[in-house]
Nucleic acid binder design. Structure first.
Lengths: 224, 224
DNA sequence: TCTTATCAAATTGTTCAACAATCCTTACAT
DNA sequence: ATGTAAGGATTGTTGAACAATTTGATAAGA
């Protein structure tokens, strides 16, 4: 009678009484699988399998699907099921278009927010340390956090949300590539960008960032 | 989930065979009521009433709630129900911050997209006509469409979606005000902006737009 | 009178099982 | 090879049931 609890396999036990809903708990597990590559883009998420595995009702699972669908990680096709989103080259180009807009606007003014600059320094140090220890996936997440902080310079809650969503989408592409080749070239650029921001040289930072994002976009599109 | 709604279902009668899901159909009806003022900000949407009125199940209605919640039109309070969103002054300020970023970036380059310019001319004409006939609510929708087209100059599908969502949020505030006082001052500014865009004078257009949005924000915040 | 405690009613949160609608595969016919 | 017609599998929707929480009313006590 000792049936293994599927949730234990992921180190996530389901509390008896949770403040957050069961749907969010299920969504968190699926989100992790998607963003960490356990579920490849394009694969289908069958309701039967997942209700059995996660031990939640179909309704709850479908609510979790809905949550992840709004984060653009899953794609819902009417009467055909739910699939892990597949980013097209056009999607990648669009995402980088938005990034140029958001991060460019954030950087242009050259405003020196002490808290943000401190956060940037911390993230850069974290990335350097991870790189020195060959933990390239960690370098990748540090890189994403760097740009999230950049975006936050806009001082807008909504922009922060948009940016987080964009970066989550990008993860769909990232984990199909070699994290070293993907992130190594950008470590020095992050440092340089930080010094420009520190000096309040907004326009220079914007120009560097634009070149930065163009290059990153080219690297990603080269894999298609 | 995130499926484009053909929004064919505005007659409030459910077609025998629906192409979109029932939840999206219900969401479309509620969305219209909220954005057109039939449901005032702060009012509660009781499940019992709406399941009876729309003749959908509770589960389906709650999925519609979820959709509109993600669009920030409805607000969900745990165990207390769903309410039409009430925008705080901070929300309004945040929305205008994002608008300055999106519309500013769209206009700065001074790129002359013939299709977009034609669309802008058409919308301006529509607004003028509606104003001449004292149909001020129609002037309001034309004004919103004007700025939606402006945003589309960025050439990004995601930006278009963001902008549409921002303007839907703004409607929550708009329809609590006198549409004449709200939109009349901005008719000539729209025309002027159009001529600047026509001449490819990007920076001038950006400056005008920034002043424009600052003024609009002040007008809105003055009502709080 | 005011505060606090308790209870009952109403509403939301969650799950389940059944049925309807749709898609997809297979088999068959042309 | 192409098109068509079952049927089996999967998703869409519903109604009901029960749990948990809020709300409002009532009663008890200071």
């Amino acid at each position: 009678m000792s049936e293994p609890d599927p949730s234990d396999a992921y180190g996530e036990t389901r509390p008896f009484r949770v403040r957050s809903s069961t749907a969010e708990w299920a969504a968190a597990i699926l989100r992790q699988r998607v963003t960490e590559g356990g579920l490849a883009p394009g694969s289908r998420l069958a309701e039967d399998e997942l209700t059995a595995e996660l031990e939640v009702s179909r309704n709850t699972l479908r609510e979790a699907f809905s949550l992840l669908g709004h984060e653009r990680l899953l794609e819902h096709r009417l009467n055909r099921g739910v699939y892990v989103r597949v980013l097209s080259p056009a999607d990648v180009a669009d995402i980088y278009r938005v990034r140029r807009m958001i991060e460019g606007a954030a950087v242009r003014r050259g405003e020196r927010d002490p808290a943000a600059l401190a956060a940037l320094r911390e993230v850069v140090a974290e990335a350097d340390k991870a790189a020195a220890e060959d933990r390239w996936p960690d370098v990748g997440t540090a890189d994403l956090r760097f740009h999230l902080v950049i975006a936050s310079l806009n001082g807008s809650e909504r922009v922060n949300t948009m940016m987080a969503q964009l970066l989550a989408e990008l993860r769909l592409v990232f984990h199909t590539m070699d994290p070293h080749a993907l992130h190594a070239p950008f470590l020095p650029l992050n440092r340089e960008l930080l010094t420009l921001l520190d000096a309040g040289r907004g326009p220079d930072a914007e120009a560097l960032l634009a070149a930065y994002l163009d290059q990153a976009e080219r690297v990603l599109l080269a894999t298609y």
